[in-house]
Deep mutational scan, measured.
Amino acid sequence: GSMEQGFLPKGWEVRHAPNGRPFFIDHNTKTTTWEDPRLKIPA
């Protein structure tokens, strides 16, 4: 929902695949990933 959306880094969006699995869109680089960007520790 909109709650989890608010925690994503700037430029990211979460969508759900037809099977219900969430995936993440990085509008900054125009890419998608199954990995939650929030789980990655910034270098």
Rank of each mutant, 00 (worst) to 15 (best):
P18I: 08
N19E: 03
F24Q: 02
W34C: 05
G20H: 05
R15A: 07
R15M: 07
F23S: 03
R15Q: 07
P18W: 09
K40E: 09
N28Q: 06
N19L: 01
A43F: 13
E4N: 12
G11V: 00
L8W: 04
A43S: 12
N19T: 06
H27C: 12
T29G: 07
R21N: 06
P22Q: 09
R38Q: 02
N28H: 06
H16W: 15
T31N: 06
H16Y: 15
H16E: 07
P9W: 07
F7S: 15
R15W: 06
R21G: 04
W12C: 03
N28P: 03
L39Y: 10
G1F: 12
E4F: 14
P9Y: 05
S2W: 13
R38F: 04
W12N: 02
V14Q: 09
A43M: 13
L8A: 03
K10A: 15
I25S: 02
K10F: 12
T31R: 09
K30W: 07
V14P: 00
T29H: 06
A43G: 12
Q5I: 14
T31A: 06
P9F: 06
E35S: 08
F23M: 07
M3V: 12
E35M: 11
L39N: 12
R38H: 02
I41W: 13
K10S: 12
D36Q: 03
M3L: 13
P22L: 13
R15K: 09
N19F: 03
K40S: 14
P37A: 00
G20D: 04
Q5H: 13
E4P: 14
V14D: 00
F23N: 02
A17W: 06
L8Q: 00
M3C: 14
E4A: 14
N19H: 04
V14C: 15
H27W: 14
H27P: 05
P37I: 02
P37G: 00
W12A: 00
T29A: 05
F23R: 01
G20E: 04
T31K: 08
I41E: 12
P18N: 08
K10D: 10
P42M: 10
H16Q: 09
P42S: 10
Q5E: 12
P42G: 11
W12T: 01
S2T: 13
G6L: 14
R15H: 07
G11Y: 03
G1P: 12
G20F: 02
L8C: 09
G6N: 10
W34N: 03
D26L: 00
S2Y: 13
E13K: 01
M3F: 14
V14R: 06
